[in-house]
C-alpha cells in the first residue's frame, strides 16, 4: 500500500478551481517530482494536503490517505498530530519562513517539544544533532542565532532540520532551491536527497528544474492549470513524453531554469480564473489542437508508462496519435 494516496483532490477559492481532481500516490522511500509552470496549483495542492488552506478556500477529495490513516475524515486535532511529525514541509522562501522574533534553537526545539515531548537538555542535544545532520557548521552558536543573521542557504538548512526533526515518513519540498544562488541550490538538493535515502522518506519534490528531476526523481507528475496532465516514471518521461505540455516543458529546458514563468515553445500563459477554456485546458496553446480538444475536457488516460490527460497522446516518436 502506498504511503500517500490522494484521490480527486480539489481546492476552490470562490468560483475559481485552483486545483481540480488531482490524484496521485507516493510510496515509501519514493521521490515524486511535481513540475508545471507557476500558477498551475502545485503549492495549493500541497497546502491542502497539509490542511493549511483557510476559508474562504474549500478543499474536497474522494480520498486522502496517509500511512493507513484517513486524513479526509480526521479531526483537526488528529491531523495536527500527524502534520509536522510524519508529514513535514519546507518552502520556497526559507528566509521569510522562519519567525524573525525567535532564535533558530527555539524554533527547532518547539517541534521537538510538541511531537516528541523532548525538553531541556535532551531537546538541545537533538537540536544540535539535527543541525549537524543538515551540515550547519558551528551548530552550537547557530542555536542562539536569529533568522536575520542567516544566509538564504543557511535558513533553508534550518528549515530542513526543523522538517526532519521527528523523522517524518513524507517530506514535501516546495521549490526548496528556487530562491537560492545556483551554487547553493546544488548543495541543498544533494542534502535533501541524502537525507531522503538515509531516512527512507517519501519525498515530494516540486521544482522548475527538470535537470534535477532527471537526476533524482523516481516518478513525475506534471501539473497544468490545476490539473495533473501526465504521470510517468522518470527516464520514460524524458524519452517519451505523452502529453504535448510535457513535451513543451522538455524542449524548453534552459540550463538552470530559475522561475520558468513562461515557456519559450508555448505561446501564452497558464489560464487563470477568468480565461479557462471549456475543453482541454491546454487547447489555446497546444500546437496539435483538434476540434475535439476545444469542445471536450479529456480524462486521464492510461499510457504505456503512466497516465496522460490527452485525447491524442503522443507516440514514441513524439507525434500526436491523430496522425
Amino acid at each position: 500500500m502506498s504511503l500517500l494516496h490522494i484521490q480527486n483532490l480539489s481546492v476552490s477559492f470562490g468560483a475559481f478551481r485552483a486545483v481540480n481532481h488531482v490524484s496521485f500516490d507516493v510510496n515509501r522511500g519514493e521521490i515524486l517530482g511535481i513540475v508545471g509552470e507557476s500558477g498551475s496549483g502545485k503549492s495549493v495542492t500541497m497546502l491542502a494536503l497539509m490542511g493549511l488552506i483557510d476559508a474562504p478556500g474549500v478543499v474536497s477529495a474522494d480520498a486522502l490517505g496517509f500511512d493507513g490513516q484517513d486524513l479526509l475524515h480526521a479531526s483537526n486535532a488528529q491531523k495536527r498530530k500527524i502534520i509536522g511529525r510524519d508529514v513535514a514541509m519546507i518552502f520556497q522562501d526559507a528566509l521569510s519562513s522562519l519567525n524573525p522574533a525567535y532564535t533558530v534553537g527555539a524554533q527547532l526545539m518547539e517541534t521537538l517539544k510538541l511531537h516528541l515531548k523532548l525538553s531541556g537538555a535532551a531537546a538541545k542535544k537533538r537540536a544540535l544533532d539535527l543541525l549537524d545532520m543538515v551540515e550547519i557548521p558551528d551548530a552550537r552558536a547557530r542555536l542562539a542565532a536569529y533568522p536575520h543573521q542567516l544566509s538564504g542557504g543557511m535558513s533553508q538548512r534550518v528549515m530542513i532540520a526543523m522538517a526532519i526533526a521527528c523523522n517524518p515518513k513524507l517530506l514535501i519540498a516546495d521549490e526548496p532551491t528556487t530562491a537560492l544562488d545556483v551554487t547553493v541550490q546544488a548543495q541543498i538538493m544533494a542534502l535533501l536527497v541524502n537525507l531522503q535515502k538515509q531516512n527512507d522518506m517519501g519525498l515530494i519534490l516540486i521544482t522548475h528544474d527538470l535537470a534535477v528531476i532527471a537526476e533524482v526523481a523516481h516518478r513525475v507528475a506534471v501539473m497544468y492549470a490545476g490539473e495533473v496532465v501526465e504521470t510517468s516514471p522518470v527516464p520514460d518521461i524524458f524519452n517519451t513524453p505523452r502529453h504535448p505540455y510535457t513535451q513543451a516543458l522538455l524542449t524548453s529546458i534552459p540550463e538552470h531554469s530559475k522561475g520558468a514563468a513562461r515557456l519559450a515553445t508555448l505561446p501564452g500563459v497558464v489560464p487563470g480564473q477568468y480565461d479557462r477554456p471549456r475543453g482541454c485546458l491546454l487547447s489555446p496553446r497546444c500546437p496539435y489542437v483538434q476540434p475535439r480538444c476545444v469542445d471536450e475536457h479529456p480524462d486521464l488516460y492510461t499510457t504505456p508508462g503512466g497516465t496522460a490527460r490527452c485525447f491524442f497522446a503522443l507516440d514514441d516518436g513524439g507525434r500526436p496519435s491523430h496522425g
Partner: peptide
C-alpha cells in the same frame, strides 16, 4: 510565511 511554517509544524 513563518505563520504557515508554524502551522505546518502542527501547532
Amino acid at each position: 510565511d513563518y505563520i504557515r511554517t508554524a502551522r505546518a509544524k502542527g501547532l
